[in-house]
């Protein structure tokens, strides 16, 4: 082994204006607000914690059963259970700040105005590295409320958040894959003021209980996640990066290993989030980050940045 190949590759990256010392983040809804995972790995050593989508008020979420295991994945209908923005800022965000972890705050509103109020409430609050706008949660009462499935609604939400959020705070819009043309939605939210894109949220799905022959989840439909959806996510990242190579993408969807993370980077993501894999292995974000370093090193990459979007270049380059 040569001296060069033994070196730790430079894993630093950025999502637009947001500089990240490390490329692996948690995915919203799969890490709560980081505290539970801190006993499994040092949460300050990964790129950031993307917190579970927070709403204005406390929210109970949906009835159980809230999940079912599916082949290489799971389907969930949690329904955005959470304590509301005030409690979140006081207890969760302040804990993350004291812990020294970078926090990207995911917000979700019932309507456009609520998104704006959440963004305004976060103005001046310390420890908000970025805001992820969850316009794509499938677990809402009315499927028509998935803002990210409609270009106009998606743009309206992002524009409202941009209007109210602190100008220096980067905004990531989280997109749903359940659309005809994800590039069109991506372009639209960037035009409306998103600095970057989080891709992808879960796919809407359903499981029928073989005993009752009725939908298994309390919410009937739910969001499908895990390695089963990874090729869908990689395709979405690839398409959007091809159309808008200058727009930073936080890639996610079924990442379980360093090699999976590498696929997203090659497709055009600048950083990745680990979600459902955390349920299988609470140490997964740290493990995957270490595996990614090994994957890069074994291929001779000295900098993570050199692999971003490489799948778009011809093999001769």
């Amino acid at each position: 082994m040569t001296a060069t190949s033994a070196l730790q590759p430079d894993l630093s990256t950025s999502l637009g204006r947001l500089a990240l010392d490390a490329p692996v983040l948690t995915a919203s809804g799969c890490a709560a607000a980081g505290r539970e995972l801190d006993g499994y790995f040092d949460i300050t050593k990964i790129g950031a914690i993307v917190t579970k989508s927070i709403m204005l008020e406390a929210r109970s979420g949906r009835a159980t059963p809230r999940m079912a295991e599916t082949p290489s994945g799971m389907i969930n209908s949690i329904g955005l259970q959470g304590p509301g923005i005030e409690s979140f800022i006081e207890h969760d965000l302040s804990w993350l700040r004291k812990r020294g972890a970078k926090a990207i705050v995911s917000i979700a509103g019932n309507n456009v105005l609520e998104f704006g109020r959440l963004a305004r409430r976060l103005r001046g609050v310390e420890g908000v590295a970025a805001i992820e706008i969850n316009i794509s949660c499938p677990n809402v009462a009315n499927r028509g409320l998935v803002f990210a499935c409609n270009l106009g609604s998606a743009q309206e939400v992002v524009a409202e958040v941009r209007r109210h959020a602190a100008p220096e705070v980067p905004l990531l819009a989280k997109l749903s894959p359940d659309v005809t043309d994800i590039v069109e939605i991506a372009r639209g939210v960037v035009d409306a003021g998103a600095d970057g894109l989080s891709m992808i949220n879960t796919l809407l799905g359903m499981v029928i209980d073989p005993v009752t022959l009725r939908p298994k989840l309390g919410g009937r439909t739910g969001g499908l996640s895990g390695p089963a959806i990874r090729p869908v996510a990689v395709r979405a990242v690839y398409q959007v990066h091809a159309a808008m190579p200058q727009v930073p993408i936080l890639g996610m969807g079924g990442i379980r290993s360093g090699r999976d993370a590498l696929e997203f980077l090659a497709a055009g993501a600048s950083a990745v989030s680990v979600g459902t894999a955390i349920f299988n292995d609470p140490s997964a974000p740290m493990r995957i980050q270490n595996e990614l370093a090994d994957e890069l090193r074994s291929r001779g990459f000295e900098r993570l940045r050199d692999v971003i979007g490489i799948a778009h270049r011809s093999i001769e380059e």
Binding site: A32, E36, G61, T64, P65, R66, N76, I78, F279, P282
Partner: peptide, 16 residues
């Protein structure tokens, strides 16, 4: 005995 996805407090599926 409630069905759980993670067991460690992050998934919010095992609520009652």
């Amino acid at each position: 005995e409630e069905s759980m996805a993670c067991g460690v407090g992050v998934c919010m599926t095992c609520v009652l």
